[in-house]
Design a protein around this nucleic acid. Structure first.
Lengths: 217, 217
DNA sequence: TTATATTTTTAGACGCATCTAATTATTCTC
DNA sequence: GAGAATAATTAGATGCGTCTAAAAATATAA
């Protein structure tokens, strides 16, 4: 069984490997610790068979390590879903609490929570929730940026979840699952006129559009 | 902010004070640690203003300590209620998980959970759930033992929650909130014939009856 | 390609919560 | 009330996860 610190390091490695390599520096940055502390933990996790690690050569996950990391992601996203959908938290205020809840040890709890929520495929941020078997169901999504006039889409994810962006979307009544009809695209500034399912059309700036992942409605 | 170990010790003191004094021995026993470890923690919690403690003289809670302890009890019982009522756990298998969940730090989460569950007054074991203000709503209950033929009651609590007893009650379809009509009391062995709301009457032994707290139905 | 800058690792220390062993208080018993 | 039994505390050690400082390996640039 892993300690909380071990789980945090494992998750950081997994996350960082998603877009490139997991450097000692980046891991330390992510966990707000020092690189020397990270090195020690990498050695320990290697000892436990969760990482492939050679001094100065970088690190990758073993099969077992990946499974454990994915299990943590699953827990994190299920709890976020619970907090937003059931308890009425704002989707921009759940991360910290989910960060704690993901360390609760009880396989039965995770599976029951999954069922309780209706085995959701995506969390409130639109990120896919791995299933019990660790598999994620992928969807074909694209950036709203890539859509043309006349297209009807559903917001599937927000790629950068800064507080500012989340609040902006919130003020427009937009969240994961919202439906949009693209009315017009303005070439000169990259902005877009969109119409929600209900209510009046409005304009979205290039910056916002860039961070919205959508799927065909 | 308290560490997990500190919270565990605080809760143990609170629990033990309920039926008498909280001896260093009893605390250690409860937490599966050694008395020397307990002494150190008592000193630390005193330092933090949560306990009144004098070497060899025993320990009591300060106002602040009691508030924190009650808050932990509140969290524990709310989570147990959630696990049983919402996720479908058996009431005899939630303690361990709730023991973990009670350490989650998020006042907002506790209050939202409370609302989500409909501000329940009692947990699945029939123990009262302190409110946000720390107050508990007391009920007049008595032992089923004390009831006579013709009385209709509702099971309010089980005073000894051993696995064996819980399973026995479960097999009879009995849990907190179940309604019973007392049909007959057998003086020679202290057993009782009772009839549930639905289904056939059955007999409950003196031992079982002794542990059932009931309120007027 | 050699010097310099950056990254990573190692070595040694610290705080926390625990332990064992030894010591000190308190309580019980005759 | 004195000695024995019990309970509680202190002293010192250990494991864990972190830190700082120093050393080693790798990458960059003139």
């Amino acid at each position: 069984m892993l300690t909380r610190a071990e789980e945090d390091h494992l998750k950081a490695v997994h996350r960082l490997l998603e877009d490139g390599i997991a450097s000692t520096n980046a891991i330390a940055e992510r966990l707000s610790t020092k690189t020397s502390s990270v090195t020690v933990m990498l050695q320990k996790l290697t000892e436990k068979g969760l990482l492939n690690y050679q001094p100065y050569k970088g690190v990758t996950l073993t099969r077992e390590g990946r499974e454990q990391a994915v299990a943590l992601v699953r827990k994190h996203r299920l709890w976020e879903t619970f907090l937003v959908e059931q308890l009425g938290f704002g989707w921009d205020e759940v991360h910290e609490v989910a960060e704690q809840l993901e360390h609760i040890q009880s396989p039965k709890l995770v599976d029951k929570l999954d069922d309780f929520l209706g085995n959701p495929a995506f969390d409130p941020h639109g990120d896919p929730i791995p299933g019990k078997d660790g598999k994620v169901r992928l969807r074909q999504t694209k950036r709203l940026e890539m859509c043309g006039p006349g297209e009807s889409v559903r917001i599937a994810a927000v790629s950068e979840t800064t507080d500012g962006l989340l609040r902006l979307l919130d003020s427009r009544g937009l969240r994961i699952g919202s439906y949009l009809h693209v009315q017009d695209v303005h070439v000169f500034d990259g902005s877009m006129d969109v119409k929600p399912k209900t209510g009046a059309p409005f304009n979205l700036s290039k910056t916002v559009i860039h961070h919205l992942q959508v799927e065909p409605a």
